[in-house]
Design a protein around this nucleic acid. Structure first.
Lengths: 182, 182
DNA sequence: GTCTATATGACGATAGAC
DNA sequence: GTCTATCGTCATATAGAC
């Protein structure tokens, strides 16, 4: 798993091959098949832990804030942070093309992450549909900043991390406070 | 090129293979090498046209608005629209991992797209750094909505397209009108 | 511009032994 | 739980003829 994660970090979730991961782990290419049904199953397991780490990190970041607006802003910043310092785990939860019907735990784990935003959103918007919209808007914006950062659009990803976190935080605040919420 | 694009649409930019594209085009696997140096060069060319189409579509959408806020909002909606109706061209501009140093035209073509936002942003924010921040925020948010839509987070992508466009438009407006702009 | 043929090398997955 | 060996398949890229 460690070797697989490293490989995903280097080559992306698609460029990942079981054979190379096996070589790096120092085992034969046959060994993984005693632990996983196939290549996809290993990727799915990796993605599951990716969501779990996200959940831990985001909830920790949000726990430091009391104001719901600041909780959403903290989420956005933590999202960007995670995408940068755990890029492999982040990518694998997105760019895999894993069938969430085939791996239902995956869909659930991903939903749990977005549900972190439910309480603060509900405190800000009475209407449930409006609250869901706010959740999606904050999540999408955080994701966009993370993707642009990784793509180098903000310049060198290492150097641009802190400014990008700040901007994601600001954008989240503006999404909440600007105009109506639905 | 047509066959290659279809293939990218089906299997993503990574799953794309030159051999399969050749088969679909009805030519041998050797033929493409008379037109492109290698597989990457063909992908880069595809990505370049992807940026060009984006530029055309986004500028057309923005031309329909006079108010700078609405121009930014129209951009966001058009971004989501393009990601949905031209998914292959959209994906290839992002998920390729193409070295923009090796293909400098690519970087320029991508920058040109974001520069569409420069004038409206400048009209809204005097400070140039603040204007750039606004460009990045609108672009990132549009991208996030597009990515979430494609990933199925909003439900069936076909059905969720129009609501997502509306939400992206709203979010862009809120980014501009909410709080300070830097 | 296109073909056939080929060199070379990976990969996913399985069989069977230890 | 791990190995060696292997099958079948596919890929990228080149050489040389038409």
């Amino acid at each position: 798993m460690r070797a697989a994660l490293e490989l995903v970090a280097e080559r992306g979730a698609q460029g990942f091959t079981l054979a190379e991961a096996s070589r790096r782990a120092g085992v034969s290419v046959a060994a993984p098949y005693k632990h996983f049904a196939d290549k996809e199953a290993l990727l799915a397991e990796l993605a599951r832990t990716g969501y779990e780490r996200q959940y831990e990190r985001f909830s920790a970041a949000m726990a430091g804030e009391r104001d719901p607006v600041e909780q959403l802003a903290a989420f956005a910043a933590a999202y960007v942070q995670f995408s940068a310092d755990s890029r492999a785990l982040f990518d694998i939860t997105f760019a895999t093309g894993l069938d969430k019907q085939l791996y239902p735990e995956l869909g659930r784990a991903g939903d749990r992450v977005l549900e972190l935003l439910r309480e603060p959103a509900a405190r800000l918007v009475r209407d449930p549909a409006g609250a869901l919209d706010l959740i999606h808007a904050v999540g999408a914006t955080a994701h966009g900043f993370a993707a642009f950062l990784a793509e180098g659009i903000f310049g060198d990803p290492a150097g641009a991390l802190e400014p990008t976190k700040r901007r994601a935080r600001d954008a989240a605040r503006r999404l909440v406070t600007g105009g109506r919420s639905g």
